[in-house]
Amino acid sequence: MIVLSQVINGLILGTIYILMALGLSLIRGTMGILNFAHGVLFTLGAYFTVKVAMLTNFWVGIIIGPIFVGLVGMFIQRFFMRRLQGKHELFGLLLTFGMAYIIEDIIKIIWGVGGQPFNIPPSLSGFVNLGFLIYPTYRLFILGVTTFLLLALYIFLNKTKAGLIIKAGSRDLTMVSLLGIPVQKVFTLVFGLGTMLAGIAGALAAPMWGVQPTMGNKILIPCFVVICLGGMGSLIGAVVGGLIIGVAVSLAILIQPFFSDLIIYVIMATVLLVRPRGLFGEVGEAFE
């Protein structure tokens, strides 16, 4: 029973990884930048949600908080990243790396280095009897929200013009501009969307992990592992990779807690040795 419970815990952890990895993957696929500020934007999502929830209620917080993170992302793209247009992509990486430190310090300056209390509403606290297992309601709520978001993202990318432009841009940005579409506006949209996903992940994780300035640091690296394992730029890869890593981490804790840090690299290295482009990555493929 404890194994089953850990598998489900792993799936929940996996959904947080998935939201993070999808944002990273979208940004990298379209803009060619590995966003090192993704972890701190996760943290920012938790803080914004907590603070808005304090002024209003949990539900308003969990919706408005991530939207604010998306707006911060759009601001960063619009006023900082655009200045790097035409420069080597390493500059973009360095910029996001620096941004990560700056935003973390801003969080510390405004809200202090200590943790923030965050209580979930009574309707989400408590447990649900699944028949075979009694499980925390809030964790099932995360599973539901993530499933809904994945469907919404899939529909957005495949059924809306903006989504199709993002897919097209992941393959040939120059051709997108030759259709008269302003590429920098597409970038702002993608960065806003990707960072909002990080914000949602942070908001959802906040009640489980506690809200403190460094909460995003430990999640960034596993998310890089998830996109390498699933295949760069693949949506389905991010989903499957996220679930595998989530479950592996949860099960490793049962054996020996420090295994959970080790096992993700073992899995990644094993898969990449057999299949260098990851589980679902095609050569040069993105967002299928």
Partner: peptide, 24 residues
Amino acid sequence: LKPDQIVRQGISLVPDTRRIFPNL
């Protein structure tokens, strides 16, 4: 002007490599 601004003036290039989006 940038390519997208030029295209919006009403001029369009059909490139020699066609550049069809393979994933759409």
